[in-house]
Design a binder for these strands. Structure first.
Lengths: 136, 136
DNA sequence: GTTTTACATTTGACGAGTCAACAATTGACT
DNA sequence: AGTCAATTGTTGACTCGTCAAATGTAAAAC
């Protein structure tokens, strides 16, 4: 395995990431990262930013900035934890819940692009390979 | 296939990209994109920027800026094509060739991180899956 | 032989991530 | 108490990508 081959492979990952993220955004109207963020908050109900950060494995600073934007759009509300003023609790607004479910429904009708190039089993393969990569 | 699952998968790709790109840079001292760029110029010998752009599938502007940096580092030289003054021809300097080969040799001794988490056949699987994704 | 039109590159403004420095708060140790 | 360290979040400076507008050149149309 030459360095050249590795570089080609990793560059393919980069390209795939870019394509896939922009096509997700076009289809759903949500940026991939912010959609993921909203869904995490949705699943956890109410949680401090640090928990989102650990789950998403993204920089603190990025979290702060995305949440600021989501707050401006009226998708989340943030309040200091009264029991620990260092923490900021985040939770979804009703508007967010509404928009997210309607987005899901829209999506059910028009299958996502990815299913046009990958079969179910290929998707599972890809997922498990990525999981291994993310152990690095 | 729910939208939620798709978002998780695509986010995994994003994370993998980030990890892998930074670890490549740490190991080799070259940014992944610029390494790829140098290797492409190496393979083609001398070529206009537009050719690099098509091969790498990256924005024109990014090409210009990377090449400016590589030029400052003394890794490439750029000259207008005298037969077509719109084009800029790019070619590697000897310094670049030297540094690249010594980088390859360093790498041969210490196997790349990726080979620690993926087998040869898994790498091939991954590559072909990504190829399909990049057809989007 | 001008005048469009197309092409190659550059530049500026922006989005999304990183890291590092900072502030505020909490908790622990004497 | 009172200091010192760790935690949480914010901000600023930077990188790397995008898009869109601007520049300069070549080719095509009339």
């Amino acid at each position: 395995m030459e360095l050249r081959d590795i570089s080609r492979l990793l560059y393919q990952i980069k390209l795939a990431d870019q394509r896939v993220a922009t096509s997700f955004e076009k289809e759903t109207g949500f940026s991939l990262t912010r959609y993921e963020m909203l869904m995490i908050v949705h699943d956890k109900g109410v949680c401090p930013q640090s928990e989102i950060q650990q789950t998403m494995k993204i920089d603190h600073a990025a979290i702060t900035r995305h949440l600021k934007i989501l707050e401006e759009k009226g998708y989340v509300r943030r309040e200091r934890n009264t029991a620990n003023h260092r923490e900021v609790f985040v939770h979804l607004t009703d508007e967010a819940k509404h928009d997210l479910t309607s987005c899901e429904q829209d999506h059910d009708r028009s299958k996502h692009l990815i299913t046009k190039v990958l079969s179910e089993s290929e998707i599972n393969q890809l997922s498990s390979l990525l999981q291994k990569l993310n152990q690095l």
